[in-house]
């Protein structure tokens, strides 16, 4: 429900993140990326540019990879989100995508990594047998300043192969 205040109009929202339902009161102007990081302390979702270009903030919203910096938390009311914290399922294991990134040296500083993982999770769910060109196309919306992408591409090929088995 909206309460009327000049500065901080707020809304009550219920949102499911990584299978857990959360109920919070949020300011209308709170970005979904900041809601995840600050209100839910799920700081795995990174913030680089806040204008949709870098991809660091990519999450899975109702099954589709989207920029969390270009949505408001209020828009997530009633929706389901997966963040990098929910990728592996538990704290003991890595998801095959994460394991492949580690083995292939697909990350250095790791700033871009959560966004890349969430982008590629959605991509591989839809395209289980990608060729290299498709992987590069899928990665086009995620900037990495460290790796030069080659090792990320190799990690994705390895992960795709393992996920098919």
């Amino acid at each position: 429900m909206a309460t009327d205040a000049d500065n901080g109009e707020t809304h009550d929202i219920t949102v499911t993140v990584n299978g857990v339902p959360y109920r919070r009161e949020v300011e209308a102007r709170l970005l979904l990326s900041d809601f995840l990081r600050h209100d839910l302390t799920l700081a795995g979702t990174h913030v680089g540019c806040e204008h949709g270009v870098c991809g660091a903030c990519t999450i899975i919203f109702d099954g589709a990879a989207v920029r969390s910096c270009l949505m408001f938390a209020a828009q997530a009311d009633g929706h389901a989100i997966i963040t990098v914290e929910g990728l592996a399922g538990d704290r003991e294991h890595l998801h095959p995508l994460q394991a492949a990134m580690r083995e292939c040296h697909g990350l250095q500083c790791g700033y871009c990594t959560p966004g890349i993982l969430m982008t590629m999770k959605a991509f591989l769910d839809e395209t289980p047998q990608p060729d290299e060109a498709q992987i590069r196309e899928a990665l086009s919306g995620n900037l990495c300043r460290c790796t030069g992408y080659q090792h990320i591409v190799e990690a994705m090929q390895l992960a795709a192969e393992r996920l098919r088995k």
Binding site: G8, E9, H11, A28, R29, L31, D77
Partner: peptide, 10 residues
């Protein structure tokens, strides 16, 4: 940067 305050109606 963060947006200036506004009212939101779904």
């Amino acid at each position: 940067m963060k947006p200036a305050p506004f009212r939101y109606v779904a």
